[in-house]
């Protein structure tokens, strides 16, 4: 079995990044947009872990990945509260329905 090189991981991370960005841009559901953000965050995480593993750079990258996972959980908690309260007012979490502020 051929060894998996660093650039394969970087490529997957880049694909995740692009998928997340596209998801952010196209999804109209607030939770869907949040999922896009999680993809981007995990793409970055994959970068950190791959760099840490393949280039003998110590544990820094893996520690960052742990921090980011915890952070993403904290953000998801706040996100759900915000989405719920948005739903209470608008009876939907379609982000396009929030259109009172413009000018």
């Amino acid at each position: 079995m051929p060894a998996v090189e660093l650039d394969v991981y970087l490529f997957v991370a880049a694909v995740l990044f692009v998928c997340g960005a596209v998801c952010m841009a196209t999804k109209r559901n607030a939770i869907g947009v949040l999922m896009g953000v999680e993809l981007v965050l995990n793409g970055a995480n994959l970068n950190f872990v791959a760099f840490a593993r393949y280039t003998a750079l110590g544990l820094d990258g893996q520690v960052i990945a742990l921090f980011v996972i915890v952070l993403a959980a904290a953000e998801a908690a706040v996100a759900l509260a915000i989405a719920l309260s948005f739903y209470n007012n608008h009876l939907t979490i379609d982000v396009d329905r929030g259109n009172e502020l413009h000018g």
Binding site: I82, A83, S85, F86, N89, V95, G98, N99, L101
Partner: peptide, 12 residues
């Protein structure tokens, strides 16, 4: 609704 919209926009 306005401040909820603001919070959601800022958050995302």
């Amino acid at each position: 609704p306005r401040s909820q919209e603001a919070a959601l926009k800022y958050f995302l």
